[in-house]
Design a protein around this nucleic acid. Sequence first.
DNA 1: TCGCTTGTTGACCATCGGTCGATAACCGTA
DNA 2: TACGGTTATCGACCGATGGTCAACAAGCGA
Lengths: 207, 207
Amino acid sequence: MVSLSQPAYSRLDVEERRRRLLEMGTELFTRHSYDELSMADIARHAGISKGLMYHYFPSKRDYFVATLQQAATELAAVVEPSGTGTPLEQLTASVDAWLTWIDANAEAYAKLMQSATSVGEVRELIEGIREATAQRILDGLSPDSEPPPAVRSAVKGWLWFMDGVLLDWVAHRDIGRSALRDQLLGTLLGALAAAAGPDAAEISTAG
Amino acid sequence: MVSLSQPAYSRLDVEERRRRLLEMGTELFTRHSYDELSMADIARHAGISKGLMYHYFPSKRDYFVATLQQAATELAAVVEPSGTGTPLEQLTASVDAWLTWIDANAEAYAKLMQSATSVGEVRELIEGIREATAQRILDGLSPDSEPPPAVRSAVKGWLWFMDGVLLDWVAHRDIGRSALRDQLLGTLLGALAAAAGPDAAEISTAG
DNA sequence: TCGCTTGTTGACCATCGGTCGATAACCGTA
DNA sequence: TACGGTTATCGACCGATGGTCAACAAGCGA
């Protein structure tokens, strides 16, 4: 009477299990915030024991970050400049791709930005992206020389500007995508002009 | 032998105790991050029991937010526009005051921004400040009419720009305060120009 | 000196992230 | 079909944390 014909659980291939857990995680974490979910919750939701979660992911944070990795790499590929055209053209294309992606994944983007609230790793991840992007832009501006502090500051700040505008955008949705792209790029030029000093303000509009 | 002449603890007036706890908190939280400190730690540091902490503050988050309140109101008063002069002059003064405050409290500012990482309430607090500030600026731009989406977006994004630039500033400290102020204001003008459309870019430099 | 008010304590609880030895499902082999 | 080894999986357990609460006692007024 004790032994049932059906096994108490089914063994899955490691990669298969891992894949399922990640898939489920991406969905769970877009619906609930990081600390709304306990590992016990997640495990229960997956129909496995909590211990097994830790067999596949060393920590809750690791699990969370891993669920973002997929979207992150996909996103990085999209924004990656083509390598052809002037730096400004490349940047325009990148921003355009970036906006298109967010347009389609607004919820995920907002959730990501908000999740920086709970998970320090995400903040570092975002900060890392900003840093790398800033470096690319600065390289495009002056490939060889060290940029003046004001220019570095302007580019860095502009990336914050983008996130602020984009969060506003996904919240309101009352601006066209191409108009927004032009506005973003225009602001970068304005910021660079301001960085060059008030006397040089006409530089940005002259070119 | 059991009873000592000295009492085991001393009773303090409620407001006095609360004041001390807040004062100690502001100092503790600028040295350690939110989740580096447990309530037990804090209580031990204050020489009281953990239970008493919860007698004065309903939760750890509440305690944390309360410690920020003091600095936040002080800061709001500093940045509050004088009410005299043109909107641009008022804004200039506000930014200047803002930079001066950060110059003196760089550590606290960076810590605050970073602590948004751990405590959702702080993020909401910052977001609330941005919202209110944006409204003030928009009122200064066009007191009566609803601003166009692009303008609202530009102002909102500029406030993010500020935080990005300021974090960069406190990290590097390689820009003069007045130069930075001019750069910030110049960027706002550039952002507004970009919001008005690429054709109207000369507006910002014409004035 | 007594008794009341209430600031204060310390034991206690649920939950969380995380660990680990035991168990049993599945596969290769005979 | 039975067996044995591999290892995916379980579930009991741990220390720490945020939070609760009944009981205690410091200080004050009568």
